[in-house]
Amino acid sequence: MNLYHLRYFVTLAHMEHYTRSADLLAITQPSLSHAISSLESELGVKLFKKNGRNVTLTKYGKSFLTDAEEILEKLDTSVGSLQLAGKGEGRIDIAFLRTLGSDFVPRLLRKFLDENQGKQIDFSLHCDKVITDEILKGLKEQKYDIGFCSKINDEPLIEFIPVAKQDLVVIVPPDHPLASKSEIHLEETLEYKQIIYKSGSGLRHIIDHLFDQIGAYPDVSYEIAEDHVVAGFVANGFGIAVAPDIPIIHSLNLKVLPLISPSWQRNFYMATLKDAYHPPVVDVFKQFVIEQARNNLDYRTI
Rank of each mutant, 00 (worst) to 15 (best):
S33K: 12
G44I: 03
G88V: 01
D128E: 10
N253F: 02
N54F: 14
P262Y: 06
L97D: 10
K59H: 11
E115L: 13
R294P: 07
I71P: 01
G61S: 00
A293F: 04
K74A: 04
Q83Y: 13
D76F: 00
Y144M: 07
D283K: 15
V105Q: 05
K74E: 10
K286W: 01
T56H: 07
K137N: 06
D275I: 01
E40N: 02
F268I: 08
H209D: 15
F285A: 01
Y60T: 08
H5R: 11
L203M: 14
E70P: 03
Y18I: 09
I224T: 10
L39A: 04
C127A: 11
N236M: 09
V163H: 06
G88S: 01
I260G: 04
D67S: 07
F268W: 09
H176D: 05
Q166R: 12
G52K: 13
S63F: 11
N296Y: 09
H5F: 10
F285T: 02
V169K: 08
I27H: 02
S261P: 04
T189K: 01
D67P: 03
F104P: 09
D245S: 11
L6C: 04
V130C: 00
F148P: 00
K111H: 10
R300M: 14
I71N: 00
Y18W: 09
